[in-house]
Amino acid sequence: MQAFTQLNGLVAPLDRANVDTDAIIPKQFLKSIKRSGFGVNAFDEWRYLDHGEPGMDNSKRQINPDFVLNQARYQGASILLTRENFGCGSSREHAPWALEDFGFKVIIASSYADIFYNNCFKNGMLPIVLSADIVDSLFKQVAATPYYKLQVDLAAQTVSTPSGESFSFSVDAFRKHCLLNGLDDIGLTMQHQDKIKAFEARHQQAQPWLYN
């Protein structure tokens, strides 16, 4: 996994609450057996005016000029600013894959759905929780300032604005450690294989019917 330490990135605002993973990556693109290439179909139904299917030449499709991520000032954004309960619904990891492939490394929202939040960390992305008031003020600043950027520092757990304001955020120690160092979860867990085997032996003795 790629490490994440710091980012000074352009911010794109998606001013909606409860953005679900069906919206982030519609179901027809889940038929792929690969892990990459989902970025061109991120937010497909909002981003394009025509219906998208896997394998289409997306450069020839009709762009929806009203969709915020299509606006010139947000091209190249690496920080997505959005509202509460982002990533709700389906557990599809294709959602963070699509966002990451699109270019987002950081998401800022007042809350996330649990599974989506967890999936982000497995893909070198940092989902940051800030209070609804701070998120609201950031939306106002992004709207008022073309090419608005934020500075994110995972080690210090801060988000800093161009005017010098700084907001701290919390993140689990274990997730922070893995993300800062780009650690592979499976490799870490395998360091405990003796403990897993010992647990399994005890568990089998207590509930042998689970091992039929």
Binding site: R92, E93, H94, N119, K122, D185, I186, Q193
Partner: peptide, 11 residues
């Protein structure tokens, strides 16, 4: 998620 599917299979 799928990363965890792999993690559960492996560990």
């Amino acid at each position: 998620g799928t990363s965890e599917v792999e993690h559960v299979m492996a560990t």
